[in-house]
């Protein structure tokens, strides 16, 4: 009995050590970026706890490229996508969850198809469509392919279907329209799903790169990801510490939000992941 317990303790110690080691390895790239960004360029590869802290790198990066504009663009983009997604996906999910109409199951299959064939890979034809609409190099164009999200419709439909029908009958007896029912009963009850989907959507579109790269070509429309790649591509003369500062800056808002609300983040991703 005693030997068994000691062996188990050894096992725990080993697992703890291994977990710490992996966590350290995983955190290393990020910690390293933080180190270089907050210290003068001379300390890029010299680890000295007494090295002076500085915000110069951030100031240099901020001055070297129109990051303020890029941030405004990204915030506008992400907000627009989120609002449109909420409206469109809510209506569609409600239709799938509560109405019977011909073609429902075929249409739902077509919606699910988007989980596989994402707009991300249909860049060639989507570019032609946007050009035909005359929307090349606009923020709207970056968002358009994503606002009807198959994933969002699916997630909200699952939530709506778990809401007992007795509730809507009660509301209907009181003379509520379908929209009133949706607004007063369904949406309030689905709040956690909206939070989860919102976090996933915001972080996804904040980070999106390929489509914005293709469809934008001016400072006025570029989101931060594309701005960052333009900035670090002209690397002649730019110090690593400045590039790292820019890198941290662009991911900063999400990273800080994540560190502050990491429990909610993880739970949201978990909730969005359970199918």
């Amino acid at each position: 009995m005693r030997a068994a317990r000691r062996w188990w303790d050894f096992d725990t110690a080993l697992n703890t050590f291994a977990m710490w080691l992996l966590a350290f390895l995983w955190a290393l790239p990020l910690l390293y970026a933080v180190w270089t960004a907050f210290h003068p360029a001379a300390y890029e590869t010299r680890f000295d706890l007494t090295a002076p802290l500085t915000l110069d790198n951030f100031a240099k990066a901020w001055a070297a490229a129109p990051f303020a504009r890029y941030f405004v663009n990204t915030v506008m983009l992400v907000t627009m996508i989120l609002i449109c997604q909420f409206v469109l996906c809510t209506l569609a999910a409600f239709a799938f969850a509560r109405f019977r109409f011909p073609g429902r199951s075929i249409l739902f299959t077509l919606v699910l198809l988007q989980l596989l064939v994402m707009p991300d890979i249909l860049i060639v034809e989507n570019y032609k469509t946007i050009r035909a609409l005359g929307l090349v190099d606009t923020i709207v164009a970056i968002g358009l392919p994503y606002i009807a999200s198959g994933f969002g419709i699916f997630l909200l439909r699952q939530t709506f279907m778990s809401i007992p029908r007795e509730l809507d009958e009660a509301a209907r007896v009181e003379g509520s329209s379908f929209l009133g029912l949706l607004w007063r009963v369904y949406i309030p009850l689905a709040k956690p799903t909206y939070l989860a989907y919102g976090l996933v959507s915001v972080s996804h579109h904040w980070n999106n790169f390929l489509w914005p790269l293709i469809i934008t070509n001016s400072v006025e429309t570029r989101p931060v990801t594309v701005g960052l790649s333009v900035f670090s591509a002209i690397d002649a003369g730019l110090e690593w510490s400045v590039i790292n500062a820019a890198t941290l800056m662009t991911s900063g808002p999400l990273l800080i939000a994540f560190l502050l609300f990491q429990r909610q983040f993880v739970q949201s991703f978990m909730r969005a992941g359970i199918r």
Binding site: L22, A23, F24, W26, A27, P29, L30, Y32, A33, T36, S203, W206, N207, F209, V224, T225, L228, S229, S232, W240, I243, N244, T247, L248, T250, S251, L254, L255, F258, L259, Q262, F265, V266, F269
Partner: peptide, 21 residues
């Protein structure tokens, strides 16, 4: 958990910059 999950919230383009170094 924070260490493991943090790369998920970073843009891949930023991740690439960090690893370039």
């Amino acid at each position: 958990r924070v260490a493991f999950f943090a790369p998920t919230v970073l843009p891949l383009i930023a991740v690439a910059n960090i690893w370039m170094f």
